[in-house]
Write a protein that binds this DNA or RNA. Structure first.
Lengths: 226, 226
DNA sequence: TCAGTATATATTGTTAACAAAATAAACAAA
DNA sequence: TTTGTTTATTTTGTTAACAATATATACTGA
């Protein structure tokens, strides 16, 4: 089934979305993709079907595939779903995190500090997403981890679509405080911090302004690595 | 893209799974499916890619597609995910349900009573799933609704795989009590009842008595099934 | 210039044919 | 019988060609 080839396309598109190189509404042409990844269209079509199932791509009959553009209502549903899922994840983390996990979290925080100093917004957004996904992995529930992966992807889409009020996205030390609460095994506090953090992100989104702007696909989707 | 044709295959397979006509491990041959739905294999392959993204089907390279067989760990993750998601759903329901919604819930309860009298287990399981999906629809969060759809599907798979202790699956009047708590707008009680209900279902599953279709070898012993 | 229409191009949808791999069957040797 | 090997059959994977549809371009007439 050449699972590798197909999943490579999927992974690259997902990476590009979470990096905000691919923005909402961008058309994903079959020929363009099969040229980029040097494969035939059948692979591309299956990859697009998968991405559509992940709800990050819309398939329109006879028109093609487009990166989905979440509405405000959809965005709010997504954030509510994130609160539901990450609430359970953080509880798992507080209960299950071992020393290695805590070290990984601390290490990630310093990484986020470095990124912040670089003033590279897409990179910062990516690092922020990685923090949430690290928590999901430490929580050790693969079902929740997969769902959160989809939801954070779509969150990147939302932020790219509508923009945010403040330059700093995942606020300065909210992540740090969350890690502290995990380290002190304070379940209630950790849950409250995560919930507050997610509401904070949602509240900073400016649903009024919508700025869809797109570039050529070949720039955005460089199949750099194998 | 003949979205209709492809989604028809997907829907039929999902229905068959939730009805337990399709059981874990069953092979979904491409030719068999394209014959059944009188379409070409390209459609079938895309449908299988979608089902794989929903995690109800495993795609094994050069071997084909098989209805997935959740492990015990996976099953527990699924139930935890359900508690996380349905907790938020029921909160939405208590807040948002109008008179029509309550009427629909009452109507469904009488339907479940009728089904119970018929002693048709698959039908009962389907009706039970429908109750949870009705709650999800009334909750009006499409993201959570879609995830719960997947999770209830996989729950059907789990129950079919491992079996349950008692004949009655979704216990006699737990659903009724949940509806009552919704009608009286008792959020805390509704959440507690749903959580308890889900734990109840999980506890009735006999993970010890695995049916002999776990390993890949048992697929071969298994005669092909419609 | 602008609207509307016709033509040309490009893109998606469909099908069939063929290659590669896995499974099933047949068969020979112990 | 049982085991191992070879052959045949089935199934999955890949590719290309063609049809249907949508988009872009050119053209015509006010």
């Amino acid at each position: 089934m050449s699972e590798t080839q197909e999943s490579m396309i999927v992974e690259h598109v997902l990476d590009a979305i979470s990096d905000q190189r691919l923005r909402a509404g961008t058309k994903l042409g079959e020929q363009a993709l099969s040229d980029l990844f040097s494969c035939n269209r059948a692979h591309v079509r299956r990859a697009l079907a998968t991405l559509s199932a992940y709800q990050v791509v819309d398939l329109i009959p006879n028109r093609g595939a487009f990166v989905s553009t979440p509405s405000e209502n959809e965005a709010r549903d997504i954030f509510q779903a994130r609160r539901a899922i990450e609430s359970t994840i953080i509880r798992n983390v507080v209960r299950r995190a071992n020393d290695a996990d805590l070290a990984a979290l601390r290490s990630h925080l310093t990484h986020e500090d470095e990124v912040r100093r670089e003033n590279d917004r897409p990179k910062a957004i990516r690092a922020s997403r990685a923090f949430h996904m690290l928590l999901a992995r430490i929580g050790r529930n693969t079902v929740l981890e997969k769902y959160l992966s989809e939801l954070t992807m779509r969150t990147s889409l939302i932020i790219g679509l509508y923009g945010t009020n403040k330059a700093s996205l995942c606020a300065d030390d909210e992540h740090r405080h969350i890690v502290d609460s995990i380290a002190s095994r304070d379940e209630a506090r950790a849950q409250e911090l995560v919930d507050h953090h997610l509401r904070h992100i949602e509240n900073e989104i400016e649903f009024g302004s919508q700025s869809p702007r797109i570039g050529p696909l070949s720039f955005i989707l460089q199949p750099s690595e194998g």
